[in-house]
Write a protein that binds this DNA or RNA. Structure first.
Lengths: 165, 165
DNA sequence: CATTTAGTTCAATAATTTTTGAACTAAATG
DNA sequence: CATTTAGTTCAAAAATTATTGAACTAAATG
């Protein structure tokens, strides 16, 4: 079982890497998910991941800054503890979508810059508009989620098989 | 003007890097956007980007494979030409969202693996469901886009100022 | 069939990113 | 106020990823 958790932690490392974050950040996140306590100390994380203090220091800053973990401090205890952050569930997607806004800006800029008025130009307008539009749609979607969360979770729980890859 | 295009090409390189692709792929894409022809040869790209044949070879494969560029071949000409791909506009987002499905799977798996039944567990269920759900929503959104494209583009074109940055 | 053209492959190199580890700050404790 | 504890910073090392360049395939041309 502990071995399975170790494997899970490494799996998270690789997933995070694929999402453009660091492997160590993934490991730390995975550890926060499967560890047996609600929150764990810097040292526990360091020992669990067998990494240097410097590496954990940077990694935890990354996780806190991106909102994936939160620091916990306790009265009469000068250690810093960490737990996975339960807030702002839509933010990771929102942040990703903002990259598409940037892509849209870039496509539009490229269109302005080129010396031809052709099929490509039309497509660039279409593509950039698509990315702007989908960014805007997102806010509506996240609102829907907030309002109908309970209902949606029940639904997805009922037909679990339909959505498991 | 040509200098501005060069700068644009480099800007695309950096953007693509941020999106998790390679800088060279971004440069090549940028070049396809601002070049004065509809399609350009392998050699033109290589010369414009001052890169090696090997690098361009790999890069163009990447762009074609991810659907961002398409190869063009002409009768009586054994060169391969490339142009930006005008098809499958939603695919890039779809592909990105599929990463969230994977994230959802991983969160759920972590929940199953841990030895506590607590607040975190509820949150993990909520988070994984959110990512499954938003993946499903996307298909509907892309369908809406396909159906109302014209109207939406007009709308966004009319109030350009509201959406620039 | 030798040569040129078009592009691929892949080992070596360059560039970048991550991780370590040692020296440091800053707060608490004896 | 010296020592311990908690964590940070940053230069150097390790690991990873991208790019080059040379040798190669495969098709077309003379």
């Amino acid at each position: 079982m502990e071995n399975e958790k170790q494997m899970y932690i490494e799996e998270c490392g690789l997933l995070f890497e694929k999402l453009g974050l660091t492997r160590m950040a993934g490991r730390a996140f995975g550890y926060l998910v499967v560890c047996d306590e609600d929150h764990v100390s810097f040292k526990q994380i360091q020992e669990a991941l067998k990494a240097s203090k410097g590496s954990i220091s940077g990694t935890m800053k990354q996780l806190v800054q991106t909102g994936m973990a939160e620091a916990v401090s306790l009265p009469g205890d000068r250690k810093t503890y960490y737990r996975i952050s339960k807030i702002k569930i839509g933010d990771m997607i929102r942040q990703r979508i903002s990259q598409f806004i940037e892509l849209a800006d870039t496509l539009q800029k490229g269109d302005d810059l080129k010396n031809r008025e052709d099929e490509t130009s039309g497509w660039l307008t279409e593509a950039s508009t698509f990315y702007y539009w989908i960014g805007d749609q997102l806010d509506g979607i996240i609102k829907t989620w907030e309002n109908e969360k309970q209902k949606i979770i029940q639904q997805y729980h009922a037909n679990k098989k339909e959505h498991s890859t």
